Computed example of a mutant assay.
Amino acid sequence: MASDDGMGQSLRRIRHARGKSLAVVAGLAGISTSYLSRLESGERALDRRSLIIALARALEVAPSEITRSGVGLSGDLDEDRSLGDVRLSMLQASIGEPGGEVVSSSVLKIRANSVLDAQRRCDYSMVGSELPGLIRDLHTSLAAGRDDEALLKLAVLTHVQGTQAWLSAIGAAPDLAWQASLLARRAAERLDDPLFGAVSAFGTSFGLLSAGGFEPARRLLSAAEPGTATNEAMQVSGMLALTHALVAAAKVDAGSRRAALDQAADLAAHTGDANAMWFGFGPSNVGIWRMSVALEAGDHHEAAAIAETVDPRALAATRQAAYYREYGRALARLPKRQTEAVLMLRRAEKISPARIHRHPFMRAVLTELLARAKKEAVGRELRGMAYRSGLSL
């Protein structure tokens, strides 16, 4: 397996290539020179969107230049083998030449539900194997004008909760996930249904977030109006509120962040734990999002405190992986909690290896834990996760 030294080394290489000093880049990014030095050495994890965007702007590069892994999709995981076919099926759909078969909406719905259920179970190998054929047949059937409204709804859900979520989970290039969100957006625009428009807005906002488009993401989320007339609408509105809170944290807007989280919590109290539009919205999921928002705001103590109020047993596998991942990420920065952090990250890895090995934030956290451990003794579990993630030991 190839190895790399994580985002810190990428950051240093880009800075040197730009001919900029630590002091200049730190000043432009709004951080101290010593903090930038620790980010480059891996002693501090580069795991906040706002900081990545600030550094990318200081260095005049795209954020993906910093977050890009040196390992890439090398075929280590079963799902990697499907990536090329998924990419091709999306390209064919985007140019109106899907190359599939005309299939009834009822059959396609069964197939789509199977894929989305596998996504929730973190069965990414199954999702990857089924997505290409589903995408081709779905778009071929749409082109034939069969069950138009039903198929458009399936297209929105398949591309946001299936294609885009899968691509993000396995660490594929952000532009591929963005293409999936655009296919969903096209379908949503044809539908003119507030609920499905909101699902599309959720997917598009994540694409904007990764590119540093915080304000466009905020406007898009604010414009979506699924309402609260039904339990389903409340769940979708709650997911938009949670996404809005994450955007606000990235924008360092504490007031909007708190208001959005309060709104989501209030809606979750009414809906309970549910799964409209495959979001898995409810009190338990709100807890995980509160952890993620606190981490984006740089408050690791708050994220760890929130984790202690969440029961991961009430969650689907994909959300359990997120819980343990974010809990580990929070504990990694707290004094004398590194051993617990490794335990939590290992639990996440057992559920979903890709979400640890491929996620740039998690690779940054592992690098920070390694940098600290080298001063003492590197634990077996930490060393194993770092190796499986392709990091230098």
Rank of each mutant, 00 (worst) to 15 (best):
A260D: 04
D262R: 14
Q263F: 05
A264V: 03
A264T: 02
A265G: 13
A265S: 14
A265K: 12
L267C: 09
A268F: 02
A269L: 11
H270K: 14
G272Q: 07
A274Y: 02
A274S: 14
A276H: 13
A276R: 04
A276L: 05
A276N: 10
M277T: 12
F279I: 14
G280A: 11
P283M: 03
P283D: 11
P283K: 07
P283G: 10
P283E: 11
S284P: 01
N285G: 08
N285C: 12
V286R: 01
G287Y: 07
I288W: 06
R290E: 15
M291T: 02
M291Q: 13
S292F: 07
V293R: 05
A294C: 04
A294E: 13
A294N: 06
L295W: 07
L295I: 09
L295C: 03
E296A: 02
D299V: 08
A305G: 09
I306L: 14
A307V: 05
T309M: 12
T309Y: 06
T309P: 02
V310D: 05
V310P: 03
D311R: 09
R313Q: 14
R313S: 15
A314H: 14
A316W: 01
A317I: 00
A317L: 07
R319E: 02
R319W: 04
Q320H: 00
Q320K: 10
Q320S: 08
A321K: 05
Y323R: 02
Y323A: 00
Y323T: 00
Y324L: 02
Y324E: 00
R325C: 03
R325V: 00
E326K: 09
E326L: 13
Y327D: 05
A330H: 03
R333C: 10
L334I: 08
R337K: 12
R337Q: 14
Q338R: 15
Q338G: 09
T339A: 13
T339V: 12
T339W: 07
E340T: 04
E340V: 00
E340C: 04
E340S: 13
V342E: 04
V342A: 06
V342S: 01
L343F: 05
M344V: 01
R346Y: 12
R347C: 08
E349H: 15
E349W: 15
I351E: 07
S352Y: 06
S352P: 09
